[in-house]
Design a protein around this nucleic acid. Structure first.
Length: 150
DNA sequence: GCCAACGTTGGC
DNA sequence: GCCAACGTTGGC
């Protein structure tokens, strides 16, 4: 089993939203590297750190799990969607997604500030300079270390 | 709101 | 294939 971190802006979709709906198709990813992680890397059951970005207190707020294999993101075909991609066709869809299932909310937010203070997390992709990827791989050691802070 | 760091686009 | 311009992300 692999582990991942997935970012979401809480104003758009928060850990509480995920708790409410239970399972959510992770639509709208329009970055090839992030898509490739979903398409080629993720398997049902993989653990996901749910991260709030672009907010007052950025950090890891909950645990989720990959709940499906990758399949075409329907929003790419929807002309009314913000994520519509005119270059994508039903025959050769460009964008894929996976379903994400709520597991639990953390007792508290493990903040980005705290993560930066951890010497053993220097290699963590989230903390790398200029990182903007919305989906990142997390090693078992990083996963354990981050959750030990809870 | 600012700005650094990227990714993408499109002219050539 | 290069690269400038532009758009986006995301912390602060």
């Amino acid at each position: 089993m692999r582990h991942w971190l997935m970012k979401s802006e809480p104003d758009a979709f928060s850990i509480d939203d995920l708790a409410r709906v239970g399972t959510e198709p992770w639509s709208g990813v329009r970055n090839y590297q992030a898509r490739n992680f979903m398409r080629d890397g993720m398997r049902p059951g993989d653990g996901v750190l749910f991260y709030h970005s672009s907010c007052a207190e950025p950090g890891v707020v909950g645990i989720a799990a990959v709940a499906s294999d990758a399949y075409p993101d329907p929003t790419q075909f929807d002309r009314k969607s913000h994520y519509f991609d005119p270059a994508s066709t039903q025959e050769t869809p460009r964008w894929q997604l996976v379903d994400i299932a709520f597991k639990r909310k953390l007792a508290r937010t493990i903040t980005l500030t705290e993560l930066k203070e951890q010497p053993r997390l220097e290699e963590f992709a989230l903390l790398r300079r200029g990182n903007r990827l919305s989906i990142l791989p997390v090693t078992q050691a990083q996963w354990d270390r981050i959750l030990s802070l809870e």
